[in-house]
């Protein structure tokens, strides 16, 4: 295990630009929150590069800053200091409207609790990002049904979320995250509400369908069962990246399935 760890955890920045372009480039990113008069430093100088075609995982204990980092990367939280570029674009230079539009066109989201709209059918839920981007309703529904077909739910397009299992709901959420062909897909604990088998099905889907050479996936997870799907694992603690695991599937094979054993 030690051999695959970065030898300098304080400088966990990885520059793996050879061959492929960068999807995300963060340098010295900090973020603090004020609560009850106290400032909590959620991110303390994050350096992170994610390449195109890469599936990166952010892992670490609760409160280590994973969710804050993913929020900054996705452009829904503003950083305090440092630099963060997504596909070369810096959120700090954008107006709120530009940021919203950029997010709508470039970022797809998969949430822990799926966050599907309960009153909409699967197809209507998947169509939402297209509707937000101004696609006509009929065209959006058609594209949504095609995407649902790709994730194996072609027969359930008219089902409401409550009529679907947890795994099926997450597949709908993945279809929703991909339908508008975003270049970055951000997933927050996508398998934590799913059993082992379903979790693996979802991860296979993300790896095989959502990921391609022009797209990057960043997944926040606690779920050690899915570490083997990552190209790299960024281990966080106390607002910093303290470790990077490369090619974890190989290490999982060597250690019996747990990259951090």
């Amino acid at each position: 295990m030690t051999s695959i760890m970065n030898e300098h955890p304080q400088a966990a920045r990885i520059h793996e630009t050879a061959g492929r372009g960068l999807a995300i480039h963060c340098s010295g990113v900090t973020k603090g929150f004020t609560a009850g008069g106290n400032t909590i430093r959620a991110l303390r100088g994050i350096d992170l590069d994610v390449r195109l075609g890469e599936l990166a995982m952010l892992v670490g204990p609760s409160g280590c800053g994973k969710t804050t980092l993913i929020s900054v990367v996705a452009g829904i939280l503003d950083r305090d200091e440092g630099e963060c570029r997504v596909f070369g674009q810096d959120f700090a230079t954008m107006s709120a409207r530009q940021k919203t539009r950029f997010r709508g066109q470039t970022v797809g989201f998969v949430f822990q609790q799926f966050n599907l709209l309960p009153a909409l059918t699967a197809a209507q839920n998947v169509a939402v990002p297209l509707l937000i981007n101004g696609v006509a309703h009929a065209a959006a529904i058609k594209a949504a049904k095609e995407m649902l077909d790709r994730v194996g739910l072609g027969e359930r397009t008219e089902s409401l979320p409550k009529q679907l299992s947890g795994g099926q709901q997450q597949r709908v959420a993945i279809a929703r995250a991909m339908v508008h062909r975003p270049r970055l897909i951000v997933c927050d604990e996508p398998t934590s509400a799913l059993d082992h088998e379903t979790g693996h099905t979802v991860m296979r889907l993300l790896k095989n369908v959502a990921l391609d050479e022009d797209r990057a996936l960043v997944i926040v997870t606690h779920d050690a069962r899915i570490f083997g799907f990552a190209d790299r694992i960024f281990k966080m603690d106390d607002g910093r990246i303290v470790d990077v695991v490369r090619n974890p599937s190989a290490s999982i094979g060597a250690s019996g399935g747990d990259a951090h054993a």
Binding site: I76, A96, T100, R103, G104, F109, L117, I132
Partner: peptide, 16 residues
């Protein structure tokens, strides 16, 4: 609220 939050995250602006 979470649904509105999700829509906001997915690119729906305040005006929308």
């Amino acid at each position: 609220l979470k649904q509105f939050g999700a829509l906001k995250a997915m690119g729906a602006g305040n005006l929308r």
